[in-house]
């Protein structure tokens, strides 16, 4: 009964990708992908997405921990706020970033006064735009992973004299590692695909702010075959990232499932 809609869902997800692969100009794919402009965009995309992912991990994991564990008033409100960028059109995110960090915005004006350069049109702007849209993916994935670990293990570790920070480092985070890896993979993939906020906030300049999605969008107007070749490259990259991370994730999950040694529990 469920097989028909399930198959339909699969077709909806995969058919466009199949069409993309089918439209790929295989003959000169190599030369198209190796063009300096494409390589520039690829290098920029990979580095900015990697930096954004690290940034997301640095601030997102602590936020996820707070959401999952801390005694925090208004926690569900904070969680709802975290998810806003998920449902926000990325272009709106770009506008919001401009309103905060643009040269006419109070914060942006101050930054420009201090450092002499504005944030928009810099690679930093690309990273910020990617971080803005990718962070919720990481936070939600990691919060779920931390929430899924056994809090009593942390309590048991605390009785051995371990500080809260030590418990987080040695017990909570390793236990949530598979979820963190999955979150980081999602985060990276999302950052890699970021388009709207980047275009709005960072502009589009080769080597500085023109990431793969921007290059694809531009090429679509002038050289559709190049756009298809680049899209295929992006697709392969994203799938590779997800496959690698998924392999680890599954391994980690099996480990976690084996982890409960003793049986029942009385109040």
């Amino acid at each position: 009964m469920l097989l028909v809609p399930a198959a339909l869902a699969l077709v909806l997800l995969l058919a466009p990708l199949v069409a993309l692969v089918a439209a790929t100009p295989w003959g000169d794919l190599g030369s198209r992908v190796l063009e300096p402009a494409v390589l520039d965009a690829l290098r920029l995309s990979l580095t900015t997405a990697a930096v954004s992912t690290v940034l997301c991990l640095l601030v997102g994991v602590p936020l996820a921990w707070v959401l999952a564990r801390a005694d925090l008033r208004g926690r569900s409100l904070v969680r709802a706020l975290v998810t806003v960028p998920l449902v926000l059109p990325p272009v709106v995110g770009g506008v919001a970033l401009l309103l905060l960090l643009g040269r006419r915005a109070p914060v942006g004006r101050q930054l420009e006064a201090w450092f002499g350069v504005g944030v928009p049109f810099t690679t930093l702007a690309v990273v910020l735009a990617q971080t803005f849209v990718a962070l919720p993916f990481l936070v939600l994935a990691v919060e779920g992973a931390i929430g899924g670990t056994d809090e009593r293990r942390e309590a048991a570790a605390a009785t051995l004299g371990a500080s809260r920070w030590y418990v987080v480092r040695r017990v909570t985070l390793p236990a949530a590692a598979p979820g963190i890896a999955a979150g980081a993979a999602l985060c990276f993939a999302r950052a890699l695909g970021e388009f709207g906020a980047t275009l709005t906030f960072a502009g589009s300049f080769p080597g500085t702010t023109r990431t793969m999605p921007l290059a694809v969008h531009l090429a679509l107007d002038t050289d559709p075959d190049a756009a298809v070749a680049m899209s295929l490259l992006l697709l392969v990259l994203s799938v590779a990232v997800l496959l690698v991370m998924r392999g680890r994730w599954m391994g980690g999950l099996t480990g976690a499932r084996d982890a409960a040694p003793a049986g029942g529990r009385s109040p």
Partner: peptide, 11 residues
């Protein structure tokens, strides 16, 4: 010395 090369005139 442009800082950004936009998609079209409106952008």
């Amino acid at each position: 010395a442009p800082d950004t090369l936009e998609q079209d005139a409106r952008a």
